[in-house]
């Protein structure tokens, strides 16, 4: 059997987001005695040396996701900053009650780092997809969500996540942009200015959006820290585009619509939400093919934005 892409690596990248995360986290753990890492077998081989060096701070609990989150919560109760990690559906959805109760409800916080994203391991199919993860975090108070678009964006975001007082969800993906971008803290990075719409794009879909809108008269703003969403900055940008807004997100379509609506209680606006469809496709193939099926490739994005502006 020949797999098109290994779920753990991606031969198109010399360094994946996961590689960048594991290398940087290993350095941070060496330097910061309050930092802990909890794993559930996934990626544990990347921390073999760290586990030997810090047996009570770099822990692999085996394939036990309830215990993964609970152990991270317990480390937080002992005054540590825990980073727990697994494939997105197992980390977020399988043990969601632990995510809900074992940090904020205990008066603590932690960092959760996922791989797999919405369709990274396409030939693994839906059991390994987690397009609904960010929407779930929106049901909890206070969680920050970081969605890097390139491996080089991961270390600074990890630094921020580890330093933060709040809980943070860091969503790593094999999908990525050609180049990294430095986003000013908690605001949007404006890459192009136009008059007809403000297009906000999150993480790895940036290149597709730039290609799709190359000859459209729109503002394009990028973020890799979608929670909290900079809605004040969005309003400022959209004021110059007739309060016409397009949100492009690499997870469930419409995830951020409620935040845009909340920001526009006092003013009419138009919003097009573009993201991963709700339906299960029951298809295999590659991540790029799934991106196309969800209309998130440049061609699909362009068609939907043009229709919206027509």
């Amino acid at each position: 059997m020949v797999f098109i892409a290994d779920p753990l690596t991606d031969d198109r990248q010399t360094l994946t987001m996961r590689d960048a995360w594991a290398a940087h986290l290993t350095d941070l753990v060496d330097a910061d005695p309050r930092l802990a890492v909890v794993l559930a077998d996934i990626s544990s081989e990347m921390f073999a040396e760290a586990m030997k060096a810090h047996p009570d701070r770099v822990i692999n609990v085996g394939i036990r996701e309830q215990l993964l989150i609970g152990t991270a919560g317990g480390l937080a109760l002992a005054g540590m900053r825990p980073v727990a990690h697994s494939y997105a559906p197992f980390l977020v959805e399988r043990a969601f009650e632990q995510v809900k109760l074992d940090f904020e409800h205990q008066g603590t916080s932690g960092v959760l780092v996922s791989v797999g994203a919405s369709y990274d391991w396409a030939e693994g199919s839906f059991t390994h997809f987690s397009p609904r993860d960010v929407a779930l975090f929106d049901t909890l108070p206070g969680w920050r969500v970081f969605v890097p678009g390139h491996a080089a964006e991961v270390p600074p975001l990890l630094d921020r996540a580890v330093r933060a007082d709040d809980s943070v969800y860091l969503r790593l993906s094999l999908r990525h942009n050609e180049n990294p971008h430095a986003v000013p803290e908690d605001s949007l990075l404006v890459l192009r200015e136009g008059a007809r719409a403000t297009v906000v794009v999150v993480g790895p879909l940036l290149d597709n959006v730039l290609e799709a809108t190359a000859d459209l008269d729109v503002t394009v703003a990028y973020t890799n820290t979608p929670r909290p969403l900079d809605t004040a900055g969005l309003r400022e940008l959209a004021a110059d585009t007739g309060d016409t807004i397009v949100m492009v997100e690499p997870y469930l379509e419409g995830t951020s619509a409620w935040l845009v609506a909340e920001a526009y209680e006092d003013r009419p606006h138009r919003l097009l939400s573009i993201g991963v469809g709700r339906e299960e496709l029951r298809r295999y193939g590659t991540a790029a093919e799934h991106e196309r099926l969800h209309g998130l490739d440049a061609e699909g994005l362009r068609a939907r934005v043009r229709r919206f502006l027509a």
Binding site: A36, T71, A78, M80
Partner: peptide
């Protein structure tokens, strides 16, 4: 019990 496991490691 899972929280206790983490706390034990943390101590």
């Amino acid at each position: 019990l899972p929280l206790g496991v983490g706390t034990a490691h943390g101590l």
